[in-house]
Design a protein around this nucleic acid. Structure first.
Lengths: 223, 223
DNA sequence: GATTGACCAATAGTGGTCATTCGGTCAACA
DNA sequence: TGTTGACCGAATGACCACTATTGGTCAATC
């Protein structure tokens, strides 16, 4: 029964993601989600108190999966624990995840309203200030730069290129991956210290980040 | 008479910019522009063949002014000719120009439709491939990187933070200027060669860029 | 007890009307 | 001759009545 219910829960989350990717949060109706998951509409409300809670859970799950996949990439790469490695793997995983991309890229107009919806579903910061302080202590990022500014910069360097993509799109423009590759070089040259420390601490720091993630949404009461 | 006409032309362009900034291209009517410039509607068509041509001219003028102001900043700064200086001054001037910002930032939704309009009015590339080749020849940017990729990267590093701004906006987020400052450091460390060349060539290269700029708009026939 | 789907009030969309406003012209005017 | 503003057809969008769909509930059913 617990397994049964868990399955249904997961199925509903899968269906939610599928419908959202197909037509955005607005157009993903509870009935449609239920149909996609092959359960009744009422069953949705046995698992989740509201549509909002359902979508929240889908985003939460995606974020968690994203971070753990990224953590695995990082751990598998001997140099992965450096800031540049973390940046590189975060981007690679992000680009590989359509739902994650949609959450970030969406500014309300992709495919004429795909994911058109409240800003609620858009994580503000991934690599937080605390994470960067840990990295600095481990000698994996320059200690002379403000962690808060650096945290924000890394967000900008992740989201910025995605948002700029449709604006700068041009036949002569290089692929998104090439731009990110060059950006990773800039991160190495500009944000990592000259003397090379052991990247292991970075792996652990990101692992901790991935384990501890819980999204807090804009509205306090999920309702 | 020529001076008279020139004045009227300029007045009309001023009025166009003012109205566009107030309510977007769509809502800036020819009659409103004429009223703002204190001339009759018919007079507009004595100066410009169409509204499109009028707006095109306003954008063209703004771009030209922007580039020449930037060139002046660069020339006034002893280190201005380096890539980082050019980047820094371009950004500073961009941030100081509301119309320029609107053209770039706008993705159709600022102030619910400010500048909502065709992509036509959005320059794709500022520091082109050729410019970067010249800079490389002068030893002012790394010669081992592809000019096209670098050109695109610099565009991303200019537009990206602007577009990411509303997405990442947060009480804890640092000011836009701080982010750009740090980015300029990254440009120094990552894109400039280790040995320092004479920045004078960079000043000249940008000057040439500013002089030679002519916008080509998306639609071929201005009509 | 777990699950369903008919049902509800509220909201979002649909098609159609029509006054307004638009870009652009040009006869009349200064 | 240079300038104007009344005027044009086309396009827009505010408004309406109406319909379909929505998130959510709960008596009936399995």
């Amino acid at each position: 029964m617990t397994a049964q219910n868990s399955d249904r829960r997961e199925d509903l989350l899968d269906a939610t993601v599928a419908l959202i990717l197909r037509g955005g949060v607005r157009r993903a109706s509870v009935e449609g989600i239920a149909r996609e998951a092959r359960v009744s509409k009422g069953a949705v409300y046995l698992e989740f108190p509201s549509k909002t809670a359902l979508v929240d859970a889908a985003v939460q799950r995606e974020l968690s999966r994203y971070l753990h996949s990224t953590a695995a990439r990082i751990a598998a790469d001997p140099e992965g624990g450096r800031l540049s490695g973390i940046y590189r793997h975060s981007i690679a995983e992000l680009l590989a995840r359509p739902f994650m991309r949609a959450i970030y890229e969406d500014d309300g107009r992709i495919l004429d309203g795909l994911i058109r919806g409240p800003v609620r579903y858009r994580p503000r910061v991934l690599l937080g200030e605390e994470f960067l302080r840990t990295m600095a202590d481990a000698g994996l990022v320059r200690a002379d730069l403000d962690p808060a500014t650096m945290s924000h910069l890394l967000s900008v360097l992740s989201v910025g290129p995605l948002l700029a993509e449709p604006v700068l799109r041009d036949q002569s423009a290089p692929a998104l991956e090439a731009t990110f590759e060059l950006l990773a070089d800039l991160v190495v040259a500009g944000l990592e210290p000259t003397l090379r420390a052991d990247p292991e601490a970075g792996v652990r720091a990101f692992q901790k980040l991935a384990d501890g993630v819980t999204l807090t949404f804009d509205g306090e009461r999920p309702r």
